[in-house]
Amino acid sequence: MKPSLYFFLGVFGAIALSWAAIVVGSHRQLRALGTHFDPLDNMSVPAAMSGQAAQGQRVYQELGCGACHTQQVRRYGYGWDQNRGWGERQSVARDYALQTHPQLGQARIGPDLANFGERAVKAGVDRAKLYRMLHDGQGGMPAFSFLFERRAIVGQKSSAALALPVAPGWQVVPTSRAEALVSYLLALKQDYALPEAPAAVIPAAVPATPAPAASTAPAATAPAKTP
């Protein structure tokens, strides 16, 4: 029937047009960009993630971390991302060019993690502290104790064992998933320069970085009480 044909062509075409323009159009643009070769450092940025970190990205997705954490820093002056010390420049498309599972995230019930690895180093948060934070939970974040297992000590105690009060002869150690997740979190950094994302020029009058307790060092403070 003729009117039906026009009707379906109309609906099909309307959706197809938006798909071609927005999805395909932006994809072609972004794919053409590729990575950025930085002649000063004589390397391409961003670098590909290590194998363990890439595994950690899968764990991050499996646990639905993106429901509470974003991984995108908005530009200075748009929101307070940089005032909170989440990054020194805006995140741009090329930061994610090599990621097969980018985790831009949906909500900020917890802090942004785009530069978590960099912040952790500055705040002196090492793997042990991160394991502890995941195991115990912190602030509004629930404990992810299922990422750890209680194991009998055979021979020597594992170097990754958590400093928890457990029965003698036992230890709590991170599973391979926890190890991958922590590697991933520590690998999160956008600390290189990209021409399209210049570092923000922050006026002196505005407090550039809040007190470390706020969000620069989410892991630096003691783990939350576990009642």
């Binding site: 379906f8 609906v11 099909f12 959706i15 938006s18 798909w19 927005i22 999805v23 932006s26 994809h27 972004l30 794919r31 498309a93 090329r94 994610y96 060019a97 090599l98 990621q99 097969t100 599972h101 980018p102 831009l104």
Partner: peptide, 30 residues
């Protein structure tokens, strides 16, 4: 008619022949 259109386009670009980088987020949002 729209459900299979959007869902299969998203399936094709996110799982079957996955695009990398933020193009995924654009597919997801669209």
């Amino acid at each position: 008619f729209a459900l299979p259109w959007f869902y299969s386009a998203a399936y094709a670009m996110l799982s079957l022949y996955p695009v990398t980088g933020v193009s995924q987020a654009i597919v997801g949002a669209w």
